[in-house]
């Protein structure tokens, strides 16, 4: 059973790294959003620096949605999902493996790239680590909330269109606590730990709920 779990994880990581895997698209999209915001707000570094954590969080959130529709759709289209259903592995664990692979190939790189992109919005040096840390613990929630929705739309041809509409409202709490933790690190009345721990809790809950929901949706999808 462990080997089946690892096999799914390994395969998804391999697919993301091969040509056409789209593993790097989320990063490019992240960069694009961070570049677009100053065009709308103006190049005032003081302003950008103040809202930097918010820009980075919004950018990361939207980037996580890119390609999320392919999480199960690709497997559904080519029949791999039937193979996964026939596996000795419970469907929940298969979803967990796929969600983990999604996070490793999108959430983790986004969190690691965030300090670098923080330079573009003049994020103060002392805020870089906290922003990266909040993204590191917050993005798993996005991966798994997304996995639940992606499982629902796996069989739909136009699932890519409906997915962001389904996922975005569910990510509101993650966004709120992610940004307030990052802002708390910049100074303010709330200590950093309070929103940060709530963010951790949201991620853990999302992993459980998202996995169960996705497995239930996949079990009788066709």
């Amino acid at each position: 059973m462990t080997s089946a779990f690892l096999a799914i994880l390994k395969r998804d990581l391999a697919l993301a790294s091969r040509a056409g895997g789209g593993g790097e698209l989320a990063l490019v999209f992240f960069l694009t959003i961070v570049v677009l915001v100053p065009f709308a707000l103006g190049p005032d570094l003081n302003l950008l620096s103040r809202i930097g954590p918010a820009i980075l969080w919004l950018g990361a959130l939207l980037s996580m949605l890119i390609g999320l529709d392919r999480l199960f759709q690709g497997d559904e289209e080519d029949g791999s999902l039937d193979l996964i259903r026939a596996s000795v592995l419970p469907l929940e664990l298969a979803v967990l493996a796929k969600g983990l692979a999604h996070w490793l190939t999108t959430g983790l790189p986004l969190a690691l790239a965030a300090p670098l992109l923080g330079l573009l919005v003049a994020l103060p040096g002392e805020a870089m680590l906290p922003v990266a840390a909040t993204l590191l613990v917050g993005t798993p929630a996005l991966s798994f909330i997304g996995a639940g929705a992606a499982a629902l739309t796996a069989g739909l041809r136009r699932g890519g269109l409906i997915l962001p509409v389904l996922v975005a409202p569910l990510t509101v709490p993650v966004l709120i606590f992610g940004v307030s933790a990052a802002n708390a690190a910049l100074g303010g009345t709330i200590p950093f730990a309070t929103p940060f721990l709530i963010l951790c809790a949201l991620s853990l809950a999302a992993i459980v709920v998202g996995t169960l929901a996705a497995a239930a949706a996949l079990r009788h999808s066709a």
Partner: peptide, 30 residues
Amino acid sequence: TYWVWDARLTSMLVLLLIYLGIMALWRTLD
């Protein structure tokens, strides 16, 4: 500061984004 939104640098950044888009399209179509 490492970055200001100077017109020339910003144009170069947009050019980089276009480059990245082209590379992404190459990788997507096999």
